[in-house]
Amino acid sequence: MTQSSFNQELQKREGFRSELCAAQAIAVRIWRVELSYPLSVLWFIAMPFVWLIPMLLTGNAVSGGPESVNLETLTGTSDWVSYVAIGTAVLGLTMSLMWGTANAFRREQNAGTLETLMTTPIKKGTLIWGALLHNIQHGGLGVVLQLVGSMLLFGVSLNIWGILPALAIIALMVIGMQGIVLTLVCVVLLAKQGWMVIEFLASGLTLLAPMAYPLAVFPPIIQYIATASPLTWSVDAFRNFLIFGLAGPAANQAVAALLILDTIYLLIGMVLFKRTEKYVRSKGALTQF
């Protein structure tokens, strides 16, 4: 390995593939750090259930059985356990995307490694894409865990014809959420207490998304606002596919809405991120933001 030729050889390897490899290395590194805390592993396995169980207990207290006439009137299905278990399965993934990815910069800063990462030839966005990749893997495994657990423990049944379209919906959701997350990254970069904004936005989007209840329970004005969130459409379509299969209601409408929202949010997010990153560098505040 001659000295300078090695460096020159590395320089030639620019492009999408090298960025993807870097993003994957970042994702693997986050896994390694996470798995070095034994309690994190336990939490990862337990999380979907400790969130779901109180919901199921609450639902059971109100319904007194596995069927709900009121829910059937509102949604077309009386099986409230499946409705809640499938809808809330997306919750862990959403939280992973919002918190894990938006805080990618902050986490590196707290660890002291942000500047070092920024001196490597990866593109600035690759750090976020790497964190995103990790969180898709992490959150995605959580979704699978909750769905399988729900089938085994709570008798939830899934329509197998709906699995592939549901996965496609998740992909569309991740794209739209990434636009929102990029905006959140800007907030984290600019505001000292950015976590407050993330917390409010994450809680707000989760509240508006019909995870454990249909949008119909909201007043009309809030129903209208909720349609601006990609999460709202994703949760509904994801659940409809897994309950009703390909015959689910308004699937085309959901896909179209998601495509439009994804484009808008991703564009806004990318422009904001580019401008913010430049602003932070001009302030020389990478270590102190």
Binding site: L10, Q11, R13, E14, S18, C21, A22, Q24, A25, I26, V28, R29, R32, T116, L117, T120, P121, I122
Partner: peptide, 13 residues
């Protein structure tokens, strides 16, 4: 080693 391998990949190795 893990640290160096990780950063190596960011340098396209």
């Amino acid at each position: 080693r893990e640290n160096l391998v990780f950063f190596g990949k960011l340098y396209r190795m």
